[in-house]
Amino acid sequence: MLEVRNLKLYYRTLRGYVRAVDDVTFQVRDGELLGLAGESGCGKSTLGNGLVLLKPPMNFVGGEVQLDGEKLPIEDYERMRDYRFKKVSIIPQYAMDALNPTRKIGRYIEEILESRGINFESVRETLIERLRLVNLPERVLRMYPIELSGGMKQRMVMVISTLLNPSLLIADEVTSALDVSTQKAVCLMIRNFKELGIVKSIIFITHDISVLYQIADRIMIMYAGKIAEVGKTAQIIQNPLHPYTKMLLTSLPEVGVRYTERMLSGIPGQPPQLLEPPKGCRFKERCPLRDKVCDKDPPLVEIEEDHVAYCWKVKPNA
C-alpha cells in the first residue's frame, strides 16, 4: 500500500520553480491498479519519477510517502537506492531506449543483478518464466537491444523492472508509442502482473483516459500539478463531477477510440504555466462554472466513499 501525503515536487529552473507536482495526496491500495490521467505536462511523469528517482533538477519540497507502512525516503537519493528495483520500480516513458545498446540483454540483466548483490542463477527461472508471460522468446537474452522491436524492448523493460517483485510498479505511458492492436495486449499484461501477485500495486500513467476503462480499479485525474478528481473507475466514467473530468470525458470521441492531441483541442484554452500558476483553482481559466470563490484554493469534497474532487462547485452526496 502506497500513501502519499501533501507531496510537492518542483523543478528548479533559471526562471524559478516549476510546480509540477503541488500538494498531492492519494493512496494506492494493495492489489490495486490506479490509473493516472491528465493532459500532457500536468505532472504525471514527475509524480511517477519522483517516487523512484528524485534528482536535480527535480526538487523535493515537501510531503511524505509511505510504502507498506514504512517511510519511503524519496528525498534521499542514496538511502532510496535500496528501495529501488526491490520495492519500487518504474517502466519509464522512455522505455524504448532504456537498455544499454552495447550489451546483450542477458549479460545486462546479470550485471544489474550483480550490482545489487543478487545472484543471477537464483532468479534465472523467474526470468525465463516472466519472458514467457510477456511473449518474449528466451533467445532475446542473447540479443542486443537493437535487434528487438520497440514493443519487445518495452516488454523487456517490463520484465526487468518487475524481476524482484516490487511492491509498487509505476508504468509511465506504456501504451502511447504502440499501435492500437498491441496497446490492449500490453495493458492486459501489466494488469496480469498484478493479478499474479508479482507486484502488489500499480500506478498506470497515461494521457489517454480511455485506456484505463478496462484495466484500472481507480482513476486519478491530474490537472496542472494538482489532483482534480479521484474515484473508482465506474464512478469517474459514469459520474464525473469535477468540471475538468467532465470535459475530458465528453471530449472523447468515443469510448475506446484512441485520441491523443484531439483531447487537447476538445477543451478550449491551454493549461496554465506551472512556473507561476494562478491563485486558487488552476482550472478556472477554462472552467465554465467559474465563480469568485474559485480564486481561493478549492476544497477537497468527498462525494461518496472513494470518490473525491477538488472543486468549489461539487457537492457531496449527502
Binding site: 523512484v52 528517482l53 534528482k55 532510496m80 537506492r81 535500496d82 528501495y83 529501488r84 528495483f85 526491490k86 520500480s89 518504474i90 519509464p92 522512455y94 531506449d97 532504456a98 537498455l99 544499454n100 545498446p101 550485471e111 544489474i112 550490482s115 545489487r116 523493460v157 526487468i160 523492472s161
Partner: peptide, 17 residues
C-alpha cells in the same frame, strides 16, 4: 545523462556500473 543510464539509476545499481 542518456536514458539507459537513467533507467539503471531507477534500478538502484551501483554508480560504478
Amino acid at each position: 545523462e542518456s536514458n539507459y543510464s537513467r533507467f539503471l539509476e531507477t534500478l538502484g545499481v551501483k554508480n560504478s556500473l
